[in-house]
Amino acid sequence: MRAAALGLGLVVAGGQAQAAEPVLGYAAGFLTDPFQAVLVQQALATARAEGFHTLPATNANGDAGKQISDIHNLIATGAKVLIINPTDSEAIIPALAFAAKKKVPVVAIDTAPAGGSLAMVVRADNAAMGAQACQQIGKALGGQGIVLSLMGDQATTNGRDRTTGFNTCLKASYRNIKLIQEPTNWKADQATAIAQTIVTSTPKLSAIYMQSDSVMLAGVVNVLKTAHKLKPVGQPGHIVLVSIDGTPLALQDIRKDLLDSVVSQPLNLYIKYGVYYAKAALAGKTFAPGPTDHDSTIIAKGKIEMDLLTAPIVTKANVDDPSLWGNQTKS
């Protein structure tokens, strides 16, 4: 059985040679919010259902150096293919070079590395998600007001893209909206502290854009409640709230008329196609840029190919859609 654990081609059981399950490793950048926890748990479950032997997921806890060590260790333990979610898009590149040297294909999901050798990146178009959030806020405010943008970690492609998409949209379509933007590094405590400061010091604050409701929503709602500024959608004094992720909490807050809308990341599709491309990489399959058979587009960014999945906008009208990942999990 040790041969199977090490990802070798054959094991002997009952005197007969049998094909071993391919070994898959998962290197998480951090697991401090529900989105990432669900992503890891369900990705490993899906991989097992697709015939992989899975190693225990590693957690870099936001430490780029540790994630590099985690990838080395997963390969040393026998991983023949990796799924990763980088904690730092630039810092992960040497680990990808190591995996390529060891002939271990890598699929990145959710967050794209800035370079390196990859079989595929599976993510949403994060700049488009930022622009979608901007449109929701701009329309709700009638093009006038003050908006706080709680940015994610700008060392990640997701944080940068969600910021760029939002800001570009504001400049192009809503020039009369004043922007206050603060980095949170995907940290709930930082997001809450910043929201507390801005809500207290900005009496005419009109809206808050949260780049991750998984990290930021609970704290922001609590800040508004404590400041007696948590008014239902549509009532006078309501501060427009728009977020990205689509967690069960976010969907529940839409139902309660606390959250105006959310751009729902296709977490379930990250998992489905992350595992799909991992299997394809082991089989030596490659893919060309262009439309896919699952309503997305593969683009080439330098030498990196990305399957950019669509991300729906969720409002009160479609919050109960069973296809939303937030309606498919209790986590």
Rank of each mutant, 00 (worst) to 15 (best):
K187M: 12
D161N: 08
Q42D: 12
G9H: 14
P34H: 00
M216H: 05
V275A: 03
I198A: 08
T329A: 12
A47Q: 06
P266F: 04
T292H: 02
H72D: 07
V242K: 05
G302E: 04
A13W: 03
L150I: 06
T202Q: 15
K171N: 13
L39S: 05
K272R: 15
I299R: 12
A27P: 00
G14H: 07
G165D: 06
I198C: 04
I194Q: 03
P291W: 09
A4G: 14
D257C: 09
K256M: 13
P291R: 14
G234I: 09
L324N: 09
P94G: 11
G116C: 05
T163F: 02
K231V: 14
L269R: 10
V221F: 00
L267F: 08
K229P: 00
T329P: 04
A195L: 05
P203G: 06
S264W: 04
T329L: 10
I71Y: 02
E21M: 13
R2H: 10
G130D: 04
G15I: 13
L148S: 09
L205H: 05
P183I: 11
R255A: 15
A114R: 13
M120H: 05
A112L: 01
N318I: 06
A317R: 06
T297S: 00
P312Q: 10
K279N: 00
L224C: 10
L241S: 08
T200Q: 15
P113Y: 05
G115F: 06
I313V: 15
V12I: 11
A300E: 01
Q135N: 13
E21W: 03
Y273F: 13
T286I: 01
G145A: 10
K66W: 02
S173P: 00
E50A: 15
T292K: 03
Q211E: 13
Q67K: 10
P105D: 05
D161Y: 02
T163S: 09
P312F: 07
L150F: 09
V240R: 00
Q181F: 07
F35I: 12
F98G: 00
Q265D: 10
V107L: 08
V147F: 00
G115K: 11
I84C: 09
Q154M: 15
S212H: 00
A311K: 08
M216Y: 07
G116N: 00
